[in-house]
Nucleic acid binder design. Structure first.
Lengths: 218, 218
DNA sequence: CATTTAATCCAACGTCCGATGGATAATCGT
DNA sequence: ACGATTATCCATCGGACGTTGGATTAAATG
């Protein structure tokens, strides 16, 4: 990740090796501000100042404010999707090795997810903000969330077919786990004692997942 | 709940029996708008129009915009706290009647919670918005959430002492259930098929709670 | 070297917002 | 019946916002 501000770049056409730099710096600064305070509470002059450039430079690189906002979301969510898709595919390929291996694979998958959110808490903030904007929400859900939900839901369904997995309603199980993880990040941001909270949340999630491996309901 | 708009009240001192009416109408209209779009995206003129009054009238009754915002939160959260406190106390008093009654009492309690959120989805929106405002979040958490969390956590702890309740980390269990419920409301608002989703979410939560009543981990 | 291209900043425009002062009208207290 | 009180609206002010046009600088291009 590039530094938050630039060391005052002089005007003029950029050299071939330094194109795209300013855009990244602006996006990084804008992402942090939007995650913290939202679209309307953040001014373009503020973004420009945080990035160390003029407001017109921001407009030059990212167009309107709405386009800048969308670009911030796309960048963060794409990174999340990339990490989680890879982890989900690994878990999927571990299914053939028996119920115990499948359970461990599930543990690893959610650990990757929780690690990612803890490392980049702005992801949670951006998702919460999108969930509060119904029209955008639907679009981004389709692009970034649904593929993952589908993958993990298939994972649970396949595990139920292979081992003795008790899985009442896969998509609700997955969604609830995701929201619990976001709640965990919010609690951390609000000042919950960090190390202990992190450890206990993982314990909770693992036990919850293990509970899915109990005997089928009569 | 009063109507969203007023039938154009004429100026002049109000009669004794109609004091506080305008304030309630303004608060109701403002709550709906703030829940939908947030503090900065809602203008006071817009609130005034939705309530059928002038912008100066809004200021007269509620002071600054920030005070109006806070008043909306306080009203909704107080209602939620009242309903849930009563339900939690009922569940608590059912603990002495044995493990089965305790489990049924827990089911009833979360049903009350989910019913409340489904009936008044603006509650979820307001909580999400508060969680995105760290400083306000801490204060309202202390006033409205923590008493309830403490009550339910004690409930789980007492149930573990009485029956065979497996409860690894009570406060994380409670928080995760709360967030799962908010995620459920967001999914409903985003257009998930209503009746089926409502039924399945309750099934999921009940099975999750029953899982807490399994044999203690070795 | 001359021209084109790209990035940056400065200054300004029009708009909308929250807040306020003051006028008006209807009821209350006496 | 008459002042005091309260609620309402109108008009307006200062400021912040997103956006844009144009000047400046520097590298690429030929």
């Amino acid at each position: 990740m590039a530094a938050m501000t630039m060391p005052r770049r002089r005007p003029g056409r950029p050299r071939r090796d330094e194109t795209r730099q300013t855009r990244e710096v602006v996006l990084t600064a804008a992402t942090a501000l939007f995650a913290e305070r939202g679209f309307d509470a953040v001014g373009l002059r503020e973004v420009a100042a945080a990035a160390g450039v003029d407001v017109a430079t921001v407009a030059h690189h990212t167009g309107t404010k709405a386009a800048l906002y969308d670009a911030c979301f796309a960048r963060v969510f794409a990174a999340e999707r990339e990490v989680l898709t890879k982890a989900a595919e690994q878990a999927h390929s571990a299914l053939d090795a028996g119920p115990d291996a499948a359970r461990r694979a599930l543990h690893d998958l959610v650990d990757v997810f929780v690690d990612f959110l803890e490392d980049r808490p702005e992801t949670t903030a951006l998702w919460l903000r999108r969930w509060l904007e119904p029209q955008r929400h639907a679009e981004l859900d389709q692009r970034y969330a649904e593929p993952l939900y589908r993958l993990v839901t298939e994972l649970l369904t396949a595990a139920a077919a292979a081992g003795a997995l008790v899985e009442p309603i896969p998509h609700i199980t997955v969604r609830s786990l995701v929201w619990a993880a976001h709640g965990h990040v919010v609690a951390l941001a609000a000042g919950a004692p960090g190390a202990r909270e992190r450890r206990e949340f993982r314990t909770f999630v693992h036990r919850f997942l293990d509970g899915l491996y109990g005997p089928p309901a009569p």
